[in-house]
Design a protein around this nucleic acid. Structure first.
Length: 257
DNA sequence: AATCCGTGGTA
DNA sequence: TTACCAAGGAT
């Protein structure tokens, strides 16, 4: 569950060391729930999207309160926890417990789009048709379905990659509709470019990094020096406090919550 | 459904 | 160097 939270939009290589330290520090949900959210945010380090650290902490708290400190096993109980959506609930139920669920992450979606649908890339967001196709391919036996999910994810991550698929190493090349069609380029609507420089995300990240890397409370003047555009900085500071990622601990000082 | 939410590696 | 985007979730 910890690894799945960390892997949401973050590459495996960057997760590995943080994951190891995290589990040494907090081996159980109860241990994490007993820590402050600020400690969780600090331990999250530079994985990005630090709200995930808050959600993981909140999930641990809910697990202690509602599930006797044991991570629930059912998809329904899992997806009810903060920070767990369809993918993470299905992944935990399938990978950890061998249950039969459709696991639709970006890798699985891409593999199915290519092999079964003959498209270079899946639709921008999950469609009903896409989910139905994935469900129709899933093996009936739960254990086989779990193996299938792992296999598709690994195939997508290691072989059937976005930019440079290694078709010569693909075990299902001979049955890939996309390869058979000559690997036609994606023809759907243009994907929106993900800008970052100058955005609130960058501003928030920089402000939080200043506090995260400090020993104790940080003076407002220090935060003001970290971002030049005053109104944006103030807005982001307020939103960080609103989100619970920062706390105002004095008239003009901030710390992790 | 579209947008927001961090960070850093890669081509 | 810039553009892309990585085991998504919440709103």
């Amino acid at each position: 569950m910890v690894s799945e939270f960390m892997l949401q939009q973050t590459p495996v290589a960057r997760v590995l060391p943080v994951h190891a330290t995290w589990l040494e520090t907090w081996p159980t949900p109860a241990a994490l729930a007993a820590a402050s959210t600020g400690d969780a945010v600090r331990a999250w380090g530079r994985l990005g999207y630090p709200r995930r650290a808050l959600r993981l902490h909140a999930a641990a708290t809910a697990i202690v309160a509602e599930h006797g400190g044991e991570v629930p096993r059912s998809y329904e109980d899992l997806i009810a926890l903060p920070g767990i959506g369809d993918y993470t609930a299905a992944a935990i139920a399938s990978f950890a417990h061998g249950q039969r669920h459709v696991v639709l992450d970006t890798n699985v979606r891409r593999v199915i789009a290519r092999v079964a649908a003959g498209q270079e890339l899946p639709p921008r967001s999950v469609t009903a048709a896409e989910r139905a196709l994935a469900a129709s391919l899933l093996p009936d036996a739960p254990a086989d379905a779990a193996t299938w999910n792992v296999g598709l994810m690994e195939l997508g991550a290691l072989v059937c990659s976005v930019a440079s698929p290694a078709c010569e190493r693909c075990p299902v090349l001979d049955r890939c509709a996309w390869a058979a069609a000559g690997r036609p380029a994606y023809d759907g609507p243009a994907r929106v470019a993900q800008t970052y420089a100058g955005t609130d995300r960058q501003c928030r990240g920089r402000l939080l990094a200043v506090v995260r890397d400090a020993e104790g409370p940080v003076a407002l003047s220090t935060l003001e020096a970290a971002w030049a555009i005053a109104d944006q900085r103030d807005r982001c500071l307020a939103s960080l406090v609103e989100d619970g990622l920062l706390a105002r601990v004095g008239p003009a000082s901030y710390a992790l919550p």
